[in-house]
């Protein structure tokens, strides 16, 4: 009997997509698990609040300036 290549192709597809998704789903579970563990037991030292707020303010200012510049450029 002649082998039906199209059916072979679909078999490849099933196996291939199955493996890709299996791999990535396990990876997602592992990533979530790993992140939980790392953040619980080995948290990074947080920069103190005031500097953070400062940089955020600065960022906002930068964003505002950039947006204004873009608007000006486009008008």
């Amino acid at each position: 009997m002649e082998t039906n290549l199209v059916i072979e192709g679909f078999k490849f597809m099933g196996l291939g997509m199955g493996t890709v998704f299996l791999f990535l789903i396990i990876l997602i579970v592992m990533m979530n698990f790993m992140s939980t563990i790392v953040n619980k037991f080995f948290p990074e030292p947080q920069p103190n609040e005031t500097t953070r707020a400062n940089t955020q303010n600065k960022n906002k200012k930068v964003v505002a300036a950039v947006t204004a510049a873009i608007k000006h450029h486009r008008s």
Binding site: N4, L5, V6, E8, G9, F10, F12, M13, G16, M17, V20, F21, F23, L24, I25, L27, I28, M31, N32, S35
Partner: peptide, 27 residues
């Protein structure tokens, strides 16, 4: 944002979809 990895998986459908297309052409 780990769940976005699924999107990277779905795009591989392009590979296997084309595989079926290519063998269909030769069939």
């Amino acid at each position: 944002n780990p769940k976005t990895a699924l999107l990277g998986g779905a795009a591989q459908f392009g590979i296997f979809g084309t595989l079926v297309g290519a063998v269909a052409l030769s069939q």
